[in-house]
């Protein structure tokens, strides 16, 4: 019996740590949605792109690790910034479907680019963090996952502080609420859109480095983006704490479910259980666990 419990515990720990890393990807999605109400269907591709950039820079000769990491983040900020300016800003004020379609198209383009420019083989993102797994009771946790969880927590705390406490964060929430009124308050709405995309760029860069290190970088890496949707629907599209809780739930459920159900069905549970949860969430909690509700006064 004790062995079963230990097994369950280690499943929960590994699920939770993977879930936190889902949260990090979801964070990029939530930041954009929070400020601009745009749904970014290319979030997974952003992560993949960041992975490629990180792989190229970290394996370059004579490049210090810290510099390579900073450069990856800087490049992703620049990329998101440019993308907002070139693709998304002209779509301002158009129906939301236009933005969604634009990001879906963008996702396809981004998946097509790496094989052309980097070739088709899987690359590594080497990080100097060693291979010794940390043990937590009966569970063990890979160093990259532990560091990933710590980085994610720092980011989540930082962004939460930004939105709740800083004046710029309050302004950004005002922009999300009503662009025209925000403009009349002296808020340069377009600049805040750019800032939101840049922040999403940071989240994508860090996700790309961590996930690239765990899975290796190739086009398949973009598929982690698919886990974003269950996470944000469950947690609430515009909520940072929601991204954390949604990520944890999805991570733990998929890890536990795949361990117990896969032997009977031959695998694949990991991929569909999160979506079952998502559909259930849409039916019973349409704004997610922490999403903001539409206010109707009667």
């Amino acid at each position: 019996m004790g062995e079963d419990l230990d097994f369950f515990f280690s499943l929960v720990v590994s699920g939770a740590s993977i879930g936190m890393l889902y949260s990090l990807i979801a964070l990029g999605f939530v930041l954009v949605y929070k400020a601009t109400e745009a749904l970014n269907f290319a979030q997974g591709e952003f992560v993949m792109l960041a992975g490629f950039v990180a792989a190229a820079l970290l394996t370059a000769k004579g490049m210090p690790v810290v510099l390579a990491l900073i450069a990856t983040i800087a490049i992703m900020i620049g990329f998101s910034f440019g993308l907002e300016r070139v693709v998304l800003r002209p779509l301002l004020g158009r129906p939301i479907v236009a933005v969604i379609m634009a990001t879906i198209g963008l996702a396809a383009i981004l998946r097509g680019l790496p094989p052309i420019t980097f070739g088709g083989d899987t690359r590594t993102v080497p990080l100097p963090i060693g291979d010794n797994a940390f043990s937590l009771g009966p569970a063990t946790i890979a160093p990259i996952q532990l560091y990933g969880v710590i980085v994610t927590l720092l980011f989540l705390a930082g962004f939460t502080w930004f939105f709740m406490k800083s004046r710029k964060g309050v302004a950004m929430r005002a922009v999300a609420e009503n662009q025209q009124v925000a403009m009349a308050m002296g808020i340069n709405v377009e600049r805040y859109f750019a800032i939101a995309w840049a922040m999403a760029g940071i989240a994508s860069a860090v996700s790309g480095i961590i996930w690239g290190n765990m899975l290796g970088v190739d086009v398949q890496l973009a598929l982690v983006g698919l886990k974003v949707f269950p996470v944000v629907i469950l947690g609430g599209l515009d909520s940072i704490p929601g991204a954390v809780v949604g990520g944890l739930i999805i991570g733990i459920v998929e890890s536990v479910a795949s361990a117990y159900i896969d032997p009977y069905v031959g695998g694949g549970t990991k991929d569909f259980v999160p979506y079952l949860l998502m559909i259930a969430a849409l039916m019973f909690k349409p704004y997610g666990l922490f999403g903001k509700r539409k206010i109707e006064r009667v």
């Binding site: 309050v170 929430r173 005002a174 609420e177 009124v181 925000a182 308050m185 808020i187 903001k292």
Partner: peptide, 19 residues
């Protein structure tokens, strides 16, 4: 009126003071 509905009263004022 068009207040920022999901912001608190105080946050509305802070947003108004953006300049």
């Amino acid at each position: 009126r068009r207040v920022f509905e999901h912001l608190t009263c105080e946050e509305n004022l802070i947003a108004g003071a953006h300049v």
